[in-house]
Amino acid sequence: MALFAVEYTYAPEAAAVRDEFRPEHRGWLGAQHEAGRLQFVGPFADGSGAHLMITADDADSAREFLTGDPFARESAIAAVSVRELTQVYGPY
């Protein structure tokens, strides 16, 4: 398994959609964290998006994993960046 840094950029016009589906989104994130696939996650303070650190076999698997997020299903994300990270320090 490898680590992948994921950056969500939120679509400003989809704020109401995110508000509606945030409880389901947070439930999905919590389940993924408990399962060990999501290492950490948090929104940017300015509301423009979020950062996730996930584990996956490869970048394609990481992108496929993200399709399970209710925000992705509801088109509440404008852009997604997935980059493999080489960890030097920190928990994992």
Score class of each variant (00 low, 15 high):
92 Y>S: 14
65 F>D: 02
43 P>H: 15
6 V>I: 00
8 Y>A: 00
17 V>I: 09
34 E>A: 09
27 G>V: 03
45 A>S: 15
59 A>G: 10
85 L>K: 08
54 I>Y: 05
19 D>R: 12
25 H>Q: 10
40 F>K: 12
52 L>W: 09
59 A>Q: 14
25 H>P: 08
16 A>Y: 05
38 L>V: 12
28 W>Q: 01
9 T>W: 00
37 R>W: 07
79 A>K: 11
30 G>I: 10
44 F>A: 15
8 Y>W: 00
84 E>V: 04
18 R>A: 01
88 V>C: 08
74 E>A: 14
15 A>M: 04
26 R>G: 07
78 A>V: 11
28 W>L: 05
30 G>A: 15
30 G>S: 14
8 Y>S: 00
82 V>E: 03
30 G>F: 10
50 A>I: 06
16 A>E: 10
66 L>T: 02
72 A>F: 15
1 M>P: 03
35 A>N: 06
67 T>Y: 08
51 H>F: 13
80 V>P: 06
67 T>K: 11
31 A>N: 11
29 L>Y: 05
26 R>W: 06
41 V>K: 14
14 A>P: 03
49 G>P: 09
7 E>M: 11
8 Y>H: 03
19 D>W: 09
89 Y>I: 14
22 R>E: 01
1 M>E: 05
69 D>N: 06
28 W>I: 07
36 G>P: 08
79 A>R: 13
22 R>A: 01
71 F>R: 01
84 E>M: 09
66 L>M: 07
39 Q>K: 14
19 D>C: 09
24 E>H: 08
72 A>Q: 13
81 S>I: 15
1 M>H: 05
44 F>L: 15
1 M>F: 03
87 Q>H: 10
67 T>A: 11
53 M>V: 10
82 V>I: 08
13 E>W: 04
14 A>V: 02
3 L>S: 00
43 P>V: 15
22 R>S: 04
78 A>C: 12
12 P>L: 00
56 A>H: 07
26 R>T: 08
57 D>A: 10
39 Q>G: 13
57 D>P: 09
37 R>C: 12
58 D>K: 04
71 F>K: 03
25 H>I: 12
71 F>L: 07
66 L>N: 04
69 D>M: 01
56 A>Q: 06
85 L>Q: 11
9 T>I: 02
48 S>M: 11
14 A>F: 00
22 R>T: 00
25 H>M: 12
67 T>R: 12
19 D>F: 09
65 F>T: 00
28 W>C: 04
